[in-house]
């Protein structure tokens, strides 16, 4: 059974991973210095923030929701973290610790707002988080008086620049977040409920659960991830700014969807999300190294997003077929295909 599960996982994840490998091979051949260790380090650094945000976004999208506020909340969290860390009354160690807590807490609180409003008044998360997008941005501008905050303690910046055998520490943080997310989805009651609610919320309710609780928690987790991303941002760039992160929500959604997570919920994985974020990072880096212009690069990136999702669709179908072949033959008198036809449904 273990072997079958691993096989299943490989099949499910390999498609998008294959696309990534092909992309890497193509760029290695075509773009000078793409395949250098230094460049790999750069790419890993560059995808870290989007990866962490996308992990949070994956939870929300698996529930059939969306969080448009991540970019603004990121800005707000950096401002809160930045103001604490530059407070001269605190020793550097305390400042860093409180700053990390402050950023994470800010993200979580925004998540509480998103989740509770969605669930208490049954409003679609698209609208609620659109509201949060403005609230958080406004709050960030208000409390910072639209100033960029900089000059963080050296210890803090050093972590942002550190690498271990060429792997940036901030990427290791992102990777840890991905693996934690994967563990939660695959092995915990919470993860099980996320998939179940994403697939059929009414069935979950009628099974004696309160889906709202899980949905609120998912938004809080998403907000918390944004808080973590804010810390990584500050480590990497040594600034906190109320205007950063514009459009980050779209990058996160793109990474999640390229990674094979269904926008209608219930289907998807964290490893897919990591691969999705990697594809976007590799694409951005590789096209630039090829010397492609700004506008062409933007167009190609857009096209690749769409193509990746189309490929994923075909791969999912191919997998569905192969899964029948993998499974032991069903009992003769019960051919199990009664309702799997592509008949139109409401």
């Amino acid at each position: 059974m273990r072997v079958k599960q691993i096989l299943y996982l490989l099949l499910r994840e390999a498609g998008i991973g294959l696309a990534l490998i092909l992309m890497v091979i193509a760029f290695s051949a075509a773009a000078p210095r793409f395949a250098s260790m230094a460049n790999v380090t750069n790419i890993l650094t560059q995808i870290s923030i989007n990866t962490v945000i996308s992990v949070g976004m994956t939870f929300v999208i698996l529930l059939g929701g969306i969080d448009l506020s991540v970019g603004s909340v990121l800005a707000l969290a950096t401002i809160v973290g930045g103001m604490i860390i530059t407070n001269e009354n605190l020793s550097p160690g305390t400042a860093i610790l409180l700053s990390v807590l402050g950023s994470a807490l800010t993200g979580c609180l925004c998540g509480v707002f998103n989740g509770v409003v969605c669930e208490r008044w049954k409003i679609h998360s698209f609208i609620v988080t659109l509201g949060m997008l403005n609230i958080a941005r406004g709050a960030a501008l208000q409390i910072s008086n639209s100033r960029t905050i900089s000059e963080f303690p050296d210890a803090f910046n050093d972590v942002g620049a550190a690498t271990i055998f060429g792997v940036p520490v901030i990427f290791l943080i992102a990777l840890a977040v991905v693996l934690a997310g994967r563990f939660i989805l695959a092995r915990t009651v919470f993860g099980r409920m996320i998939y179940a609610i994403g697939n059929n919320e009414e069935a979950v309710r009628l099974s004696g659960h309160d889906p709202s609780v899980y949905k609120v928690v998912a938004f809080i987790v998403c907000g918390g991830m944004v808080g973590v991303a804010a810390i990584i941002y500050m480590m990497r760039l040594n600034i906190a700014s109320p205007i950063l992160g514009v459009g980050f929500e779209l990058n996160a959604i793109a990474a999640v969807v390229i990674g094979g997570t269904s926008m209608s919920g219930g289907k998807g994985s964290m490893i897919g999300t990591l691969l999705g974020a990697s594809i976007m990072g590799v694409l951005n880096n590789g096209l630039l190294l090829l010397g492609m212009g700004d506008f062409a690069r933007q167009m190609v990136t857009g096209l690749i997003i769409v193509v990746a999702v189309i490929i994923d669709k075909y791969r999912a179908q191919a997998f569905l077929r192969s899964s029948y072949e993998l499974a032991p033959a069903p009992p003769r008198e019960e051919p199990h295909l009664r309702d799997t036809g592509p008949g139109p449904r409401v």
């Binding site: 760039l237 950063l244 951005n284 010397g291 700004d294």
Partner: peptide, 25 residues
Amino acid sequence: LVSRTAHWETEEANTLVTNLLTSHP
């Protein structure tokens, strides 16, 4: 050597220059 946009943004400029340094050390 190159002229590219980073849309006035810190993070984007950082990513852009990091990548450009690879191709134009």
